[in-house]
Simulated assay, not measured.
Amino acid sequence: MVLSKTQKKDLTKKLAKELSSYPIIGIVNMANLPAKQLQAMRSKLRGPVVVKMVKKTLMKHAFKIAEKDKPGISQLADRFEGMPALILSKDNPFKLFKTLKANQSPAPAKAGQIAPDDITIPKGKTPFSPGPIISELGGVGLKTSVQDGKVAIVNDKVVTEKGHVINAKVASVLTRLSIMPMKIGLDLVCVIENGVIYGRDVLDIDETIFLSKVQTAARHAVNLSMEAAYPTKDTMSLLIAKAFTQAKGVAVESAILNEKTTPDIIAKAARQALALQGATS
Rank of each mutant, 00 (worst) to 15 (best):
D234N: 14
N32Y: 15
A228D: 13
R42C: 10
N194D: 13
Y198Q: 06
T232W: 07
Q104G: 10
R200D: 01
V170G: 03
S254I: 04
A152M: 04
T208K: 14
S105Y: 03
Q39L: 15
P130C: 04
V154G: 07
Q39H: 09
P181W: 01
A107L: 05
T120A: 13
S237C: 01
P127N: 10
A77W: 02
A66F: 01
E18T: 14
K123P: 04
V140F: 06
Q39F: 04
K123R: 13
G26P: 01
E253Y: 08
A269G: 04
L174F: 06
L86D: 00
S237N: 09
V54K: 11
P231E: 10
L224I: 10
E253K: 14
I265P: 01
M30K: 13
A168P: 00
I209E: 11
P71H: 14
K162S: 08
I153S: 01
N155D: 15
G72A: 07
S4I: 00
S145Y: 05
N194G: 08
K60D: 06
E253L: 13
G47S: 09
R271G: 14
K44E: 12
Q75E: 11
V159G: 02
D78L: 09
S21G: 09
Q277A: 12
Y198H: 13
K36G: 02
S172Y: 08
E81P: 01
A273V: 12
H220T: 12
A102R: 10
I266Y: 07
G185A: 03
P116I: 02
S135Q: 11
A66S: 04
E253D: 15
E81Y: 05
I266H: 05
P93R: 08
E81D: 05
I192D: 00
Q39C: 07
A247G: 09
G149H: 01
L211I: 14
E259R: 14
E253Q: 14
H164R: 13
I209Y: 12
M182K: 01
K55I: 08
V189S: 02
A171T: 00
V196F: 10
N155C: 02
G149Y: 00
G199K: 09
V151W: 00
A107C: 04
L15K: 05
A31G: 03
I179H: 03
L76C: 03
S281V: 12
K17V: 08
R271H: 14
N32T: 14
N29Y: 04
M41I: 13
L58G: 06
N103P: 08
N103Y: 11
V214L: 12
L188V: 08
A229Y: 11
D69R: 14
T235M: 04
L11T: 09
R79V: 08
V51A: 05
V154F: 04
D78R: 10
P48N: 14
A109S: 07
Y22E: 06
L186K: 00
K52H: 06
L19M: 12
K90W: 09
F128W: 06
L3W: 06
F244G: 13
S172R: 07
I266S: 09
G249P: 09
S74G: 07
